[in-house]
């Protein structure tokens, strides 16, 4: 039980802006006293456990229509998800499952259905360590922000690489995330995989989260390899040098052995008291090596 569970204040003012412009204006006025709230599942646990102080003002973005729902355009191969889209909505949508299966598998692995009914894709992204992030990175996702002007677009990978060092993004409102489907070469077969390793089978913090997509041609030659790793307090990222190494290689025993060693060498997870860095490196390397092996076998 959280130590200060009875002591959390319940006295903040709650604002209900109707548009992104109103919400953004409120944030500028309230500064650090005001926090955007959506599902607030992560925020609530941080307040209850004493990891963060409950702010004096909530800016509830739930009533802003343009933040809700998603659109998938199969012709252009893009999907746009409003920041208020719940994880359950994504998890249970056949349309999303058809176009962005790695994202659906990621949401299945986040918390439990009751949390996913409240929690939003925007909140999961802004946590910087959410389990949707490795999947979103595979799809070259772009964040769309409201910043009081004409809007700002920023590749997710760029934002993740700087977000912990700079707080300027906290003044903006995340509007949506846009995903792009990989283009499938007609002579190849595409493989996708998503794994979350935790200390329990379900509803567990991640030790390692791995997302992978790649193409294999009839000769087992790899192309368009995309690999993202995260887990725990590790901010997920694409391992681009390993992607480059794999592109053009044959998916054989030699390549799999080499990529295992490269991941152990290059992946830089954050360790903690329970799971050291070395374990996370090996777990990640094993996950990717096993997926390469499975893909090579399936392709034959």
């Amino acid at each position: 039980m959280a130590a200060n569970a009875q002591g959390v204040a319940e006295a903040p003012f709650v604002w209900h802006p109707r548009s992104a412009a109103e919400a953004w204006q409120l944030k500028q006025t309230l500064g650090t006293e005001g926090v955007f709230t959506a599902g607030a599942t992560l925020l609530r646990t941080q307040w209850e456990s004493g990891l963060a102080v409950m702010p004096n003002h909530f800016i509830n973005i739930g009533a802003i229509e343009e933040l809700h729902g998603f659109e998938i355009d199969s012709v252009s191969g893009t999907g746009s998800f409003g920041a208020m889209t719940t994880l359950s909505h994504i998890r249970t949508s056949p349309q999303v499952g058809e176009s962005f299966p790695v994202l659906v598998e990621a949401t299945r692995n986040i918390a439990a259905p009751s949390i996913r009914n409240l929690a939003t894709i925007g909140g999961n992204i802004l946590s910087m360590v959410g389990d949707s992030l490795p999947a979103l990175l595979l799809y070259d996702s772009v964040l769309h922000w409201h910043d009081g002007t004409n809007g700002l677009q920023e590749p997710l990978s760029e934002w993740l690489s700087t977000a912990s060092a700079h707080a300027a993004w906290k003044e903006r409102l995340l509007m949506s995330v846009e995903l792009t489907l990989p283009i499938l070469d007609s002579n190849t077969k595409r493989f996708v995989a998503y794994h979350k390793v935790g200390r329990r089978d379900a509803f567990t913090p991640s030790v390692v989260t791995a997302a992978l997509t790649m193409q294999l041609d009839s000769e087992d030659r790899l192309s368009d390899v995309r690999l993202a790793l995260g887990g725990g307090q590790t901010i997920p990222y694409r391992l681009e040098s390993i992607e480059s190494y794999l592109n053009g290689k044959l998916a054989n025993k030699k390549t799999i052995s080499e990529v295992y060693a490269l991941i152990v060498e290059q992946f830089e997870p954050k360790g903690d008291t329970f799971v050291p860095v070395s374990y996370r490196k090996k777990a990640a390397a094993n996950l990717i090596a096993s997926e390469l092996w499975k893909a090579a076998r399936t392709a034959r």
Binding site: A40, R44, G62, S88, N117, L118
Partner: peptide, 16 residues
């Protein structure tokens, strides 16, 4: 259940 789906009432605030 809120609108027919399960939610944790410890995480749900009254205004929601």
């Amino acid at each position: 259940m809120v609108d027919g789906v399960p939610v944790n009432s410890c995480l749900t605030m009254a205004y929601q």
